[in-house]
Computed example of a mutant assay.
Amino acid sequence: MHGPGAGSSGWLLVALCAATGAYCLLRMRSGVEEQRRTAGGEALMGFGMAAMAVPAAVLAPPRWAWAVYAAVFGAAALRALWAARSGTHHLHHLVGAFAMVYMAAMTARGTHAGIPVLTGVLLLYFTAYVLWTGTRLVPVAAGGPAGGPARGPTGGPGAPGWGDRLELARACRLSMGIGMLAMLLTL
Rank of each mutant, 00 (worst) to 15 (best):
M1D: 04
S8F: 14
S8E: 14
W11H: 08
W11A: 05
A15G: 09
L16N: 02
L16E: 02
C24A: 15
L25A: 04
R27V: 14
M28G: 03
R29S: 10
S30K: 12
S30L: 13
G31F: 13
G31I: 12
V32H: 04
E34N: 02
E34Q: 07
E34A: 12
G48D: 08
M49E: 04
M49H: 01
V58S: 08
L59T: 02
A60M: 12
R63Q: 13
A65M: 14
A67P: 01
A71E: 03
V72N: 01
A75T: 03
A76Y: 00
A76R: 03
A76T: 01
L81D: 00
W82H: 12
G87M: 07
G87S: 09
T88A: 09
H89I: 08
H92R: 06
H93S: 13
G96P: 07
A97P: 07
V101D: 02
A105E: 14
T107M: 15
T107Q: 15
G110Y: 11
G114D: 11
G114Q: 07
I115D: 15
P116G: 08
G120I: 15
L122D: 05
Y125C: 01
T127S: 06
Y129R: 00
L131F: 01
G134C: 01
R136Y: 00
P139I: 05
P139S: 06
V140R: 11
A141Y: 06
G143P: 11
G143F: 14
G147K: 10
G148I: 10
P149E: 13
P149H: 05
R151V: 10
P153L: 11
G158K: 06
G158F: 12
G158I: 12
G161V: 07
W162K: 10
W162T: 08
W162C: 07
L166I: 09
R170Q: 11
A171M: 06
C172K: 04
L174H: 03
S175K: 00
S175I: 00
G179K: 02
A182Q: 03
M183D: 01
